[in-house]
């Protein structure tokens, strides 16, 4: 159970590095890292909160189902930022490297690196889950778009000649609204 202890001891350090790494994918990373107020800095605050929770789960080999909540908290944000899918998900991986690096620097615990297999496997599961969540978020975004069209907002821009629209389009879309 020595690995457990190492995770406990290094949790703060690993999570800090992990958060920092994740936030460094943003242009104004330093602000996101420094500002601790969750409301004045939602990106940084949520990332920190979620990664900390996720690390706790990874370290104790929790049921992968439990990864969903913290992962969603992050992926929901990264899914709508200008990231390629790989970059959006990539930082979840990083904890593998960070943990290895930190443990191998500790002379007393460097032998534990060999025991990281389970942990890294859990990270892999988390990354896969993150991909799913990323896709779900994108999907959700398109749903939101469709929803918006359904509620009638599109009429603002997609009406052609008002007189033409009068008899056809508007009445139809009105009906969809009514039905909705």
């Amino acid at each position: 159970m020595k690995l457990d202890e190492a995770f406990r001891n290094y949790r703060e350090k690993i999570v800090d590095r992990w958060v920092e790494y994740t936030l460094s994918t943003y242009k104004s990373s330093s602000f996101f890292i420094k500002e601790k107020d969750k409301f004045a800095n939602p990106v940084g605050g949520n990332t920190r909160e979620a990664l900390d929770a996720l690390f706790g789960l990874l370290a104790k080999n929790a049921d992968p189902q439990e990864f969903v909540a913290p992962l969603e908290q992050i992926m929901r944000i990264r899914a709508i930022q200008e990231f390629a899918a790989s970059v959006a998900v990539g930082p979840i991986h990083a904890v593998k490297h960070i943990t290895r690096e930190i443990l191998s620097k500790d002379k007393e615990r460097c032998h534990l690196v060999q025991d990281l297999y389970d942990f890294e496997f859990a990270v892999d599961l988390a990354v896969l889950a993150a991909f799913d969540l990323y896709m779900q978020c994108r999907e959700r975004l398109y749903q939101v778009r469709i929803q918006e069209i359904k509620t009638g907002n599109y009429i603002l821009t997609d009406s052609k000649c008002p007189t033409n629209l009068l008899k056809t389009n508007i009445q139809e879309s009105l009906k969809t609204v009514e039905n909705h």
Binding site: S24, T25, Y26, K27, S28, S29, S30, E82, F83, A84, A85, S86, V87, G90, P91, H93, A94, H97
Partner: peptide
């Protein structure tokens, strides 16, 4: 890890500009 292989360098620069 923070570079997209498919899309090339993304907007994520990894640092303050």
């Amino acid at each position: 890890l923070s570079k997209s292989v498919v899309q090339g360098p993304s907007l994520a620069t990894g640092a303050v500009p």
